[in-house]
Design a binder for these strands. Structure first.
Length: 145
DNA sequence: ATTCTAACA
DNA sequence: TGTTAGAA
């Protein structure tokens, strides 16, 4: 009793909360290979599972190329040792990238801290701001004239 | 109503 | 990827 459950592109799009366009795009990138019923695409459970994995990879921040490499253009040897090792490498790279971003953000937040203090400090010294300073300067220049 | 291809913002 | 035009 083989499971012949099939889905249209619209079915999967709704189920995964994406647009049919995105699904066709993944196909163009070589990540999905649905069967055709004339022109229309027909997806089975295997395709559906695969689409789920693709979106899973996207959530992790992987590129479609990386996802494709991990899933393999073909099915079957998905959990082979080589694939798992490759996944570990990709995940390590991803971790590095995120940690770098975290550092960059921390650096910018630090600069913002400094600038904020300088601004507050300046306001404390001269609450009226540059306008008052200019007025004072103009007054002094007027005295001389 | 849905899906498809192709092309462009 | 989104959008869109025109066809199936």
């Amino acid at each position: 009793m083989i499971d012949e459950t099939t889905y249209t592109i619209g079915d999967l799009a709704r189920e995964f909360g994406i647009t049919p366009r995105a699904i066709r795009f993944y196909e163009d990138e070589g990540l999905l290979a649905p069967v055709r019923a004339g022109r229309n695409r027909i997806y089975n459970k295997r395709h559906r599972t695969r689409l789920g994995l693709i979106l899973r990879g996207k959530r992790l921040g992987l590129s479609l190329a990386e996802i494709g490499e991990l899933l393999g253009m073909y099915d079957g040897l998905r959990d082979s040792a080589p694939q798992l090792r490759r996944l570990l490498v990709v995940l390590a790279e991803r971790r590095r990238a995120l940690e770098q971003q975290r550092e960059d953000i921390a650096a910018v937040l630090g600069e913002i801290d400094i600038l904020e203090r300088q601004c507050a400090e300046q306001l404390a010294e001269n609450p009226e701001g540059a306008a008052a300073a200019h007025a004072a300067l103009a007054a002094r220049l007027g005295e001389g004239a």
